[in-house]
Design a binder for these strands. Structure first.
Length: 292
DNA sequence: AAGGCTGCCATGTTCTTCTA
DNA sequence: TAGAAGAACATGGCAGCCTT
């Protein structure tokens, strides 16, 4: 069954006149007659009652018309939806970002972009680095703000800014009185860290190796907020990015003057996937505004 | 005379086979 | 293996026939 046959049938059914329908469709009457005959042959039933010159829709034709109308309408709606997705002004951007960015940079990005393009819809997905990269690979999200996605040749990544990592200590801890510390000062401290595999854990381990200390990890977690909560309870110290929901009455963030404790945040996208005009415009906005 | 159907033909597309 | 050639099939137009 051809798409065209359904359109032809709909026109004949609407006009119930083969010649007029052929004129409306800009084809010859015999061509239309044959097309309808082929459709009827495929369905195994006549769709029209032929009474002399007149062709009248029968019960099968009425049923088929009901579905044909729906099919054609659905296709029209789909075409419009696709067009709206392709239109940068009305498109959708699915953006993933790390938990730690949720209260800092994301509101700024949203207000900045939506101020310029109010009709572009932005869907937000908050997750950890590994999960975000999986979502990017599956096509669930178009872009994500993450650390460097090491090892995946299909993922493009461009650095935007450095995010400082602070030594988070309980408010009554001796180091809390200091404005800055060196990392080797936590040599004998119980350390609260992300679970192995997380990017923050890899960075923390690397920094510890750099200052020749073996971290005494007492607790492991998956969320920065959770780790900060454990610090607040006096269970240890942690190397974490700043986050607005950290309780400053119980946790003091201390600048690490040596070694430089930073992690790189960048924009990632899947290189082999089609990026809609709205997504490309969002990328341009991000790079223009946030690339350091 | 008007309108639908059928035979024949032209054209375009797809699939298969052959050849370099 | 890629490109060319031919076969098969689908579609649509013209002319003519049949029915009303």
């Amino acid at each position: 069954m051809e798409w065209q046959q359904i359109e032809y049938f709909q026109k004949v059914a609407q006009l119930q006149h083969m010649t007029k329908a052929a004129e409306a469709l800009a084809i010859s009457q015999p061509a239309l007659s044959r097309s309808i005959a082929r459709l009827e042959e495929e369905l195994g039933v006549s769709l029209f009652e032929r009474q002399g010159r007149s062709i009248i829709l029968n019960q099968y034709g009425k049923l088929f018309l009901k579905h044909a109308d729906r099919i054609l309408k659905e296709v029209e709606i789909t075409k419009k939806e696709i067009q709206s997705l392709l239109d940068p002004e009305y498109g959708v951007v699915s953006l993933g970002f790390l938990h730690t960015l949720g209260v800092s940079i994301i509101p700024d990005i949203l207000s900045g972009f939506q101020g310029l393009h109010p009709n572009t819809k932005i869907k937000l997905y908050q997750n950890n680095n590994i999960s975000l990269l999986k979502q990017l690979e599956s096509g669930e999200i178009d872009l994500c703000l993450v650390h460097h996605p090491l090892g995946d040749p299909h993922i493009e990544w461009e650095k935007l800014w450095d995010e400082e990592l602070f030594l988070m200590v309980p408010i009554n801890h001796p180091l809390a009185a200091k404005e800055s510390v060196t990392l080797d000062e936590i040599r004998n401290e119980p350390i609260i860290s992300m679970k192995p595999g997380y990017e923050l854990r890899k960075i923390a381990d690397k920094l510890c190796r750099k200052v020749n200390i073996t971290p005494n990890i007492t607790f492991e977690g998956e969320e920065v907020t959770t780790l900060a909560g454990l610090v607040a309870s006096g269970l240890g110290v942690a190397l974490l990015p700043d986050q607005k929901d950290i309780d400053e009455e119980k946790v003091k963030k201390v600048h690490v003057k040596w070694p430089s404790c930073k992690r790189q945040i960048g924009l990632a996208w899947y290189s082999e996937r089609y990026l809609s005009p709205a997504v490309r415009r969002f990328m341009k906005f991000i790079f223009t505004r946030y690339r350091s």
